[in-house]
Nucleic acid binder design. Structure first.
Lengths: 203, 203
DNA sequence: TATTCTTGATTGACTGATCAATCAATAAAA
DNA sequence: TTTTATTGATTGATCAGTCAATCAAGAATA
């Protein structure tokens, strides 16, 4: 066989290029040619390896989701207490990798793409469910089930909202601010639900 | 003169058609021809009245923003107490008109469009600032300034997040749920910041 | 009243550009 | 030679935007 084993390298290069291109442009209206050029190959090669634009986009999305999942796994690894797990879930969403302008722009375009693509919708739901599960599980060890689910819902919504707002802001609010706001929500809710015990230092 | 006075009617019809078309398609990738057909006129007429696609899109966005503004004004009109004003701001965002799938889809696409269009970004900022001002002002009459600003920020983010989540969900959560979640956040925060007095019935 | 003007309203047809996708051909490694 | 990698050229479709040409409703004129 010839210059063998190019496929995984090219695929990865094209996915990385797709993230960069979509992020810079802030839109899914990127041409295969643009992505290919960014990756340093021809547009035809992108079609050769991915079969079509849609599949390249989906592969890119899966890659981002996977990265987020790995980040989450890593963050949860060292967290032993429920409070630490909650903090970890929040922090991951605003980590440098996830909060980079390009990454945010890419995510935003995927949210829109989900309106048209069932597969995209499914992938986003997987991510949302995973995040919710992690939060809800940890919270249930700190308060009653009903309250835990409510806080998990509110936390998820607030994270998504801060994300979208960050995408728009010119002089964006720091990740630290966003983290503090979400953690404050969790802390306050837990304290209110469980007025006794260690409520202030729940996180 | 001929069939005079068509311009405002056609413009309005085209804007309404744009909202419907964008909402149904869930994307800004709608053709002028599609919008025009939905409005019952030719694509050429759309260009005649708006000068170009971009301007039609911007006019559509201004229309949505204006409607939101009017809704807000109406809701605030009857609200005499700060708590009622807060509730009004929250409720408007999840009112039937604003929470309609098509409207949400349109908003979402505008958020993405903002990445490329400075004018779109400016318009969205105007909306966000207005919402924030109203919230912050009312909250400052119920708690200290710093806490008020924090709650306003968190509330805005949570609303945006619930919005985006609603756009994705298949079987969507009810508007009532969303309202309850946000109001609970405000109530809890106010109660925590001001443990004395009427805290439970702040809303 | 009947007959031209005038002018906004409206469109079909066309253009130029863009793009995804295809394919035949080349290069090179085994 | 066979297989994989790679690309330039091409195709077919889609669109925004343009334009010249009609249509119709009132105004001016006779």
């Amino acid at each position: 066989m010839p210059k063998v084993g190019m496929e995984p390298l090219r695929k990865r290069a094209l996915i990385d290029a797709a993230i960069r291109t979509i992020g810079e442009r802030g839109s899914l209206d990127v041409t295969v040619a643009q992505i290919a050029q960014e990756a340093g190959v021809s547009a035809a090669l992108a079609h050769h390896y991915f079969g079509g634009k849609e599949q390249l986009i989906l592969a890119t999305m899966r890659h981002l989701l996977n990265e987020l999942g790995l980040d989450l796994l890593g963050a949860l690894h060292g967290a032993r207490t429920p409070a630490a797990r909650i903090a970890a879930v929040i922090a991951v969403n605003f980590s440098a990798a996830q909060f980079a302008p390009q990454t945010i722009a890419a995510w935003l375009t995927f949210y829109v793409h989900a309106q048209q693509s069932e597969e995209t919708r499914r992938l986003l739901r997987v991510y949302a469910r995973r995040m919710h599960s992690n939060l809800a599980y940890a919270l249930q060890q700190l308060t009653d089930r009903e309250t835990a689910l409510q806080i998990a819902e509110g936390t998820g919504a607030m994270i998504d909202g801060l994300y979208i707002r960050h995408a728009l802001r010119n002089g964006a609010p720091e990740a630290a601010n966003a983290i503090a706001l979400v953690e404050d929500y969790v802390t306050t809710k837990l304290a209110a639900a469980k007025p006794s015990e260690r409520s202030r230092d729940a996180l």
